[in-house]
Amino acid sequence: MIPSAFAYHRPTDLASAVGLLQQFGDEARVIAGGHSLIPMMKLRMAEVGHLVDLQAVASLKGIEVAGPQVRIGAMVTQAELISHEGLAKAAPILREAALQIADPQVRYVGTVGGNVANGDPGNDMPGLMQCLDARFALHGPNGAREVAARDFYHSAYMTERQDDEILTAIHFAAPAGGYAYEKQKRKIGDYATAAAAVQLVRDGGRVAAASVAMTNLSDTPVWSEAAGAALVGSTCDEGAVMAAIAAMLGDIDPQKDNRGPVEFKRHVAGVILARAIARAWSRA
């Protein structure tokens, strides 16, 4: 279980990191926490000639909560995210989701940026960021740009990020109302069989706004606009929840794998979404 040989780089600023990506092209990969990349390198499913370690790039760290605006640096670890009290107040769904990712050792080193940039449909943060309508900041040879999380994912591991760009931060507006991140997994440390991120705003006993996103039920995370629309205006009664589930099932496309056949995954997706809606509504 030893990867093929590579050269190691530890740039101390973003410009040098991007410079290395330009210099070495296809051969270069950035590494954040490495808990997705290193296993792939050990299996020799990822060939990396030049590994660009981002740990010393200070500008990629830090969490800022300024009024309703939140910025999370790409190199913030899941453990740092979980322990940040300001963030837990502004967007408690993040802590709830991060606590369901992997295990303590992985959360100490696994980063939010790596989780969203990797493009693995099994990762939890991409769906969550769609629920929050987050924006990803990318930095490349031509400078900085932002992409909406909802436009970022093309297919498994294929994203809007170009090879010579680095995802530097995540921005979003602190969500209002109730929240829930509900995840069904076979065991601690597993990816989701199905997971749902839900934010609901309550106004006068009715749903004023709803955002629903699903994890690991397609080759990309799925933001189900129709599921949210099915809830808005309702009293979040059983009929509305059933309509939201039906709408969500129209948007996902799960594949059979060792977590179960398609029928099972669709069933679990419905159960998980119903639970997430109920919990979010109870907090709204």
């Binding site: 530890r10 808990h35 303590p104 080193v109």
Partner: peptide, 11 residues
């Protein structure tokens, strides 16, 4: 931090 040293390069 507790880390799994099989998934960290010495570098």
């Amino acid at each position: 931090k507790s880390v799994k040293s099989c998934t960290v390069f010495a570098a």
